[in-house]
Structure formats: structure tokens, C-alpha cells
């Protein structure tokens, strides 16, 4: 039984700075979530609360409907894999893997199998690993934890493209074999988009959007054409960004165009284009969303 996540009015302050402000969030179990946000948006802070690395200043953090703080039943089945992992640098790779057996469900055989697949040298000290190999070790420990809620916070940093691809495939295979809740926090948005079922976008310490990936991918459109015609079609719609070059205007809208608007746009010579998840994210989180 994998874990759901609930945050109620959660605020976390570092001194006078609010990293998260009155956050409410519900994540169902057995799904793969993407956690997106600009630097400093509060992604790592949110994940730290879910792993009980920190206690919120206010509000309630529930995992599987139970408070996560100091709850051995819960935290032993929650894994937060941070960039580079949390290891004793003087340990050897194999020893670091074996330390995962603190967890009731850690699968050492699986970890060793992945280490072989990713060519991780077991007898090397962690401090002697390259950044990429260290990231691989962290990812392997996250996969082999067999946790009910596994969170990867920028764990791919340092991995080359084939290794990242291998990691995503291993993650998906593990998920299909044993459905559980996964949260991927990343800046490589388009790279992971195909694996995500829902996306949570954080901005300035709050939840900006929480939607199924299909909804987000279908939510926007880019209209490019004569300025007057574009303005006419987008009138009344949520404009995410606009750019103008001479008499040509390009407008990104955050709402799906109905059939009538599409017909009108086509008749006016307006070109319609999709908005990728990364483009939409950039538009949604721009400090000045009009792009002026």
C-alpha cells in the first residue's frame, strides 16, 4: 500500500523568510508526480517536510494520512534522495549500499544489480567517485529502498544523458513492478514529462498549479499572426505572455481554445501552436508574466 501526501496550511520559515506559505496539497498514492519550480521556489523545502527532515513552522504534514514527524512506521518507508545522496564520504560504495538495510524493505540484491548495470565500482570510496557516479549511487539507493513514497530532488545532476535515460527507465520499471508514489523534482522538465502523471508547480513558496500532465499540456496554445486578429481571438482569455514584432504578434494563452476560436483564428491567418510543458512552466513562473 503506497503512501498519499497531504499538506494543510503548511508554512515554513527560515528566520524571517517564508520558504513555504500556507501550502495546501493533496497527492494521491501510486502516481508519479513532477515537482517544478524556479530556484528558491520551495521545492527542496517541501520535500524536506515530507521526509521529516524539517518540522513545519505551522500546519500539518501527513503521509499515508499520518503525521510524518518522528513516525518510524512512516519515515522508514519514505525515501528522499538528494543531489549527491546522503553518505559518509569515507565509506566504500558497497558499504553505503548495505547501510540501506536499516530500512525494512531495502533490496540489496537489486541495488547490486543496478550497480553492475550502471558500472558503479563497489570497492571505491565515495569521496573518490565522480559527481555523475555519486548521483548514480544516490539514485540506486533510492530505487532499492523499495519505499512507498520516493522523492528524487535533482538527483540526475552530473549524470550524462545515457545514464539519465537508464535511470528513468529503471524508475519506470520499478514503478510498474511495484506501484508506489514518486515525486521527481527537476529542472529538466521536457526530459521527464513523458513519465509524469501529475505536475505540481511551486512559485514563491506557494502552489501555482497542480494538474494532470494532460491538462497542463492541453491548457495552452500559442497564436501567432497579425496583431489585430490575434488580439481579437484572445480577448477574454488568460494571456500568459505576448511578444510583438512589427505588425506580427505572438500570444501564449493559458486556456484551451474552443472550436469556434480555432476556426476564427484559422480564418484570420493565425498560426496555432502547442505549448510544451517547459515553455508553459517558464511562462507561468515568469516574474513579469506579460513579458513586457
Amino acid at each position: 500500500m503506497s503512501f498519499s501526501v497531504t499538506l494543510r496550511d503548511v508554512t515554513l520559515k527560515y528566520g524571517d523568510t517564508e520558504a513555504l506559505s500556507d501550502v495546501d496539497l493533496d497527492l494521491e498514492a501510486d502516481k508519479i508526480y513532477g515537482l517544478l519550480g524556479r530556484n528558491g521556489a520551495g521545492k527542496t523545502t517541501l520535500l524536506s517536510l515530507l521526509a521529516a527532515f524539517r518540522r513545519p513552522t505551522a500546519g500539518e504534514v501527513l503521509v499515508d494520512g499520518r503525521p510524518v514527524w518522528e513516525n518510524a512506521e512512516v519515515v522508514s518507508r519514505v525515501a528522499l534522495v538528494r543531489e549527491g545522496g546522503d553518505f559518509d564520504d569515507t565509506d566504500k560504495v558497497e558499504a553505503a549500499m548495505k547501510s540501506g538495510e536499516i530500512r525494512p524493505d531495502f533490496d540489496l540484491d537489486y541495488a547490486l544489480e543496478l550497480a553492475e548495470k550502471f558500472e558503479l565500482p563497489l570497492d571505491r570510496k565515495i569521496r573518490d567517485l565522480s559527481r555523475g557516479k555519486r548521483s548514480v549511487l544516490a539514485a540506486i539507493c533510492g530505487l532499492a529502498a523499495r519505499a512507498e513514497l520516493t522523492m528524487y530532488d535533482e538527483v540526475h545532476l552530473g549524470m550524462d544523458a545515457p545514464t539519465r535515460d537508464g535511470f528513468y527507465k529503471a524508475l519506470l520499471a520499478e514503478y510498474l513492478e511495484r506501484p508506489h508514489t514518486v515525486i521527481l523534482s527537476t529542472h529538466l522538465i521536457d526530459e521527464v514529462a513523458n513519465y509524469l502523471e501529475e505536475v505540481v508547480i511551486l512559485d514563491r513558496g506557494g502552489i501555482l498549479r497542480h494538474e494532470p500532465i494532460e491538462t497542463l499540456q492541453g491548457v495552452g496554445a500559442t497564436l501567432t499572426g497579425p496583431a489585430g486578429a490575434v488580439d481579437e481571438v484572445v480577448a477574454g482569455l488568460e494571456v500568459l505572455a505576448e511578444q510583438r514584432l512589427g505588425g506580427t504578434k505572438s500570444v501564449t494563452v493559458g486556456t484551451e481554445l474552443d472550436a469556434q476560436s480555432r476556426e476564427r483564428a484559422a480564418a484570420s491567418g493565425i498560426e496555432l501552436g502547442p505549448v510544451g510543458l517547459q515553455d508553459l512552466f517558464i511562462h507561468l513562473t515568469e516574474p513579469d508574466r506579460t513579458g513586457a
Binding site: A51, A52, F53, E70, N71, A72, V75, S76, R77, V78, A79, L80, R82, G85, D86, F87, D88, S99, G100, I102, R103, A145, A147
Partner: peptide, 16 residues
């Protein structure tokens, strides 16, 4: 100092 963060990352509680 060294073991505390690693132990918590492995799913141990502070009390444990």
C-alpha cells in the same frame, strides 16, 4: 555529527 543526517536519510527517526 556525521551519522545523524545519513541515518535520517535512511529513514530513521531522531528518537531511534
Amino acid at each position: 555529527y556525521t551519522m545523524f543526517p545519513n541515518a535520517l536519510a535512511q529513514g530513521l527517526t531522531r528518537r531511534e
